[in-house]
């Protein structure tokens, strides 16, 4: 895999990477701060156990430039402000951070300034308005929260304090049906993309939940248990193809364009700090083949920022790889 991938008139340049395993063991999702894209909120589940044996569930506010935590907190348990299976994170119009718990069936709310626990809502169940396995979440422009439910196999549109506005979906593999769906994305036009994990596809819906199209279940760009979706300003769709360890890119009409497998040949700032702290690591890395770590390791969430940078979070390496997309790329007209 080259550090630069050119397909048609699009070029994807690998830029840099962020974080380490210690940033987010078993990372699940992240969201860029609405006001400062160089800050993110990241959640991780470790091994999803209810007793700590080593790594545990955490969430953190992270500075992407410095590649270090602004704050981070360990959160194992069912008490207020803690998690068993954190799954999705979203930022509300109030700036607060909303984190879903796929096992405790609740949404917890935290201050984005200092991480203070502000409240929670959610009643477990399958009735409209109740929650069954809340996973991916995004707010739309109007401040409504869309929650994907992996156990109830549906999407709910809720107010930020959990009152139900709309519900759609059921278990199945037909249009508008789901099998353990995971991530969600809302594009600039308000269309909703859902990573339909168990059905190996992405479904696109209108803002009011009408099925528009599905892709990834067959043919080129076939997905395996996709987890996250993002779109860019040109309408291209990026899918975290978790099961295939790649980023799958589609155009706005859902035609596959390219597959990206990861190119992180150098360490992140954070990673370099970890290595520098232990001379044995430095020596061992000189002897070993590092190419295996260039690749994505369970890419799980993806966002595109306003600089057209595609940021892919890898669940198992706790790292993010950043690509920069150049649109309207034209081959040089002279001999370089």
């Amino acid at each position: 895999m080259a550090l630069t991938l050119t397909v048609g008139n699009r070029t994807y340049n690998y830029s840099h990477c962020i974080g380490t395993l210690y940033t987010s063991r078993g990372g699940q999702d992240y969201i860029l701060d609405a006001k400062n894209e160089d800050v993110m909120y990241v959640i991780s589940r470790a091994n999803g156990a209810d007793v700590a044996f080593g790594a545990i569930q955490r969430w953190a506010k992270w500075d992407l430039e410095k590649d270090e935590a602004i704050f981070e907190t360990s959160t194992l348990g069912a008490e207020d402000g803690n998690f068993l299976w954190p799954a999705g994170v979203a930022q509300g119009p109030d700036g607060n951070i909303y984190i879903s718990d796929e096992y405790l069936n609740r949404i917890s709310i935290f201050s984005s300034k200092d991480g203070k626990f502000l409240g929670k809502w959610g009643v477990p169940g399958a009735a409209p308005g109740q929650l069954g396995g809340p996973a991916g979440m995004r707010f739309d422009r109007d401040g409504s929260l869309y929650v994907v439910e992996s156990q109830n196999n549906r999407v709910q549109k809720l107010t930020k304090d959990g009152r139900r506005l709309a519900t759609w979906g059921e278990k199945g593999s037909g249009p508008g049906q789901f099998d353990a769906p995971f991530g969600i994305h809302i594009d600039a036009k308000g269309n909703i993309f859902v990573a339909d994990w168990g059905n190996n596809r992405v479904q696109k819906f209108s803002p009011d939940g009408q099925f528009i199209l599905e892709f990834g279940a067959s043919g080129a760009g076939r997905l395996l248990r996709p987890t996250g979706v993002a779109t860019d300003a040109q309408g291209d769709v990026y899918v975290a193809d978790w099961g295939n360890d790649r980023l799958q890119i589609f155009d706005a009409e859902a035609n596959p364009i390219a597959s990206v497998y990861g190119d992180a040949r150098e360490l992140s700032k954070q990673g370099q700090r970890v290595i520098n702290a232990n001379p044995d690591f430095v020596k061992a890395r000189r002897r070993a083949d590092t190419s295996v770590e260039w690749k994505f390791f369970r890419p799980i969430a993806v966002h595109v920022n306003s600089r057209n940078e595609i940021i892919v979070m890898e669940s198992l390496s706790g790292r993010m790889q950043v690509y920069k997309k150049e649109k309207d790329y034209v081959e040089a007209q002279f001999n370089l």
């Binding site: 063991r25 078993g26 589940r45 091994n47 999803g48 080593g54 790594a55 796929e102 669940s315 198992l316």
Partner: peptide
């Protein structure tokens, strides 16, 4: 096995014996 790895991510590359046992 992907149904395990989705809900218990680090059991795929277990950092400790208990995750391997899971």
């Amino acid at each position: 096995i992907l149904k395990l790895y989705r809900y218990h991510p680090m059991t795929e590359v277990p950092p400790n014996p208990s995750s391997a046992q899971m």
